[in-house]
Design a protein around this nucleic acid. Structure first.
Lengths: 198, 198
DNA sequence: TAAAGTGAACTGTACGTTCAGTTCACTTAG
DNA sequence: CTAAGTGAACTGAACGTACAGTTCACTTTA
């Protein structure tokens, strides 16, 4: 799949490692992606692996991170409400599937593993936050949302609940739940705001 | 501090373990609370420890869990808005301090450690969710909040963002931020709802 | 030939287990 | 009201396992 000679060895080694890691993550989660296993499957020695990444978690974050961006494209449905709700729905669906467990394990590992945190942020958060900021700005331009709320706060409000549920497992992540969360976030918890579309 | 004979040995051993674990957590986080260290400090042997708890994380969850309930009493300020906002503020403050890191490490460990998850839920989530449900029901009784939103969804919306920030460290947890989150959650993200108190 | 990768062995840490021997609280016999 | 007995609980020390990350002499490749 990869022309053997068109890339320098170092690139081929990295690619090979990331590919093997992806497979291992799918087969048995982060626990299965031990450095020895990655080395064995990729054919790249541990010594080389540690020349490219600072720690195990960083490899997994990079291997897995690309997938998430691909799996969750940015919606464009015409209104802020529809776009934001759809995005919450998509992210929730991603979390609810097998990838959700891997994501949770990676986030958990990043808490413990100091060196991995920047990798996690780079490959998971930055892109997604930028995406949501994009949606938010569109909505602001249309005058649909409250300009006193920052894009960051809006992102946290919409997706924090999903992360919370994913990590603790205290509540389900079904589509219906995702919609309830999005609706509540958009309209607010207070009674005055519960006007029409409930 | 503990009458040597008024409790059976097993109770004394448990107490001693939990006390030692609390100290170790404060000194060096979850990483410092190894089973060997707990055993050494408490004077309780590892064999005994593993008769009382299924895994290391469970000990830490129990040792640390009590503290959180004590540190975050239930507010009663007269209105739903004030109560809920104050609760968000208190939890945020707790997360922002040294205890926040320990909490994050525990939550992270519970993701990996299957056996610990129920302990985590028991000692951290259940009490707090019940507390917030209490606030929510008060507010419902007063007709201040939207009855279409369940207490669970409301809880996730208010505290999920804090957890999100705590775990990823992408945004600060200052008092001002907590208020912004609470306000946004209560009033909603849409423009129509941004009426008076912004 | 120099930069990059290999492979295998090694270190260190920590979880969780096991088991022979000891302590303690409580009961029952004298 | 003592003294022997009993079983549950705890001790201590060792052990097996797993895995992260390092080191180094050697080989490959550009």
């Amino acid at each position: 799949m990869l022309e053997q000679s068109s890339h320098p060895r170092s690139v081929r080694a990295k690619e090979s490692v990331l590919c093997a890691t992806k497979e291992l993550l799918d087969e048995g989660g982060l626990g299965a992606a031990t450095v020895d296993a990655i080395s064995a499957r990729s054919g790249v020695s541990k010594a080389t692996i540690y020349k490219h990444w600072p720690c195990r978690t960083a490899i997994a974050a990079e291997a897995f991170g690309r997938r998430m961006a691909d799996a969750i494209p940015l919606p464009d449905e015409g209104t802020a409400i529809a776009d934001l709700t759809e995005q919450v729905r998509r992210v929730s669906k991603f979390y609810a599937g097998p990838n959700g467990k891997i994501f949770a394990q990676l986030l958990a590992a990043s808490v413990t593993d100091e060196a991995a945190a920047p990798y996690f942020r780079e490959f998971f958060l930055d892109t997604r936050r930028a995406n949501v900021a994009e949606l938010w700005n569109r909505a602001l331009a249309r005058g649909e949302v409250n300009s006193a709320v920052s894009a960051g706060t809006a992102t946290d409000l919409l997706f924090g609940p999903l992360i919370f549920r994913l990590m603790t497992g205290h509540a389900p992540l079904a589509e219906q739940e995702a919609e309830a969360i999005a609706t509540a976030a958009l309209h607010g918890l207070l009674k005055a705001n519960s006007a029409e579309d409930y």
